[in-house]
Amino acid sequence: MTDNALFDYLLRLGDTSLVLGHRLSEWCGHAPELEEDVALTNIALDLVGHARLLLSYAGEVEGQGRDEDALAFLRDVYDYRNHLLVEQPNRDFGHTIARQFLHDAWALELYEKLMVSADHRLAGIAAKAVKEKRYHLRHSGEWVVRLGDGTEDSRARMADAFDRLWRFTAEMFEADAVEQALAAAGVAPDPASLRPAWEARVDAVLAEATLPARPAIIGTSGGRIGRHGEHLGYLLAEMQFLQRAYPGATW
């Protein structure tokens, strides 16, 4: 395994957390209930927190003097490595929850495995994150059930949300040379190995939610290698505005 592979992998994890945290933070003050304003903001806070740990470490591994902010604010779209799933826009609360659930079910499985990573720094980050991931999955899973098994309207909205999002999930289980090298070195699990547990979790919740079963997934991917959809550019334009408008300033 090279430092390059580890750097790339940390960006994939860090960017995925950061972009999803950004999406959730867009809800702040606009949620259906005050309790959800607090919960979504709290989860956003956790995710951006994880992103900071991962991107700081990535900067150190790279050794070019880039810190978490240089990586977050001064890379353009094609250098971002997040999953396509997490850059999808919020649409309504149901879509936000479906996106979150599909991610959380993957993330909990991954971070539990990362706790025993041969890379101790990464194992430490995972140990901290995993407690929060458990709460995130409980939160999003419970909402999928409530909204799926709620009213006719809510069920239709959730079915639509999953229908739109399935195609972005295959990417979470793909491996290229980066993941293969890390798996070989015992630093990260083989992404495909996360799939059975993810499917079991997702299927159980969908069944309880009386939602249509998971279809055979024909995936679209590319986020991990910097090929994104149109949404990410706007997200970064907003997120990076101050650092771009006032280059070199300290905040």
């Binding site: 606009h30 209930e33 609360f93 409530r146 709620g150 809510s154």
Partner: peptide
């Protein structure tokens, strides 16, 4: 807007 847009969510939670 937050309240109105969230009406379906609150109704669903109650129904569930």
């Amino acid at each position: 807007k937050a309240w109105d847009d969230g009406a379906w969510v609150r109704e669903a939670a109650l129904a569930h």
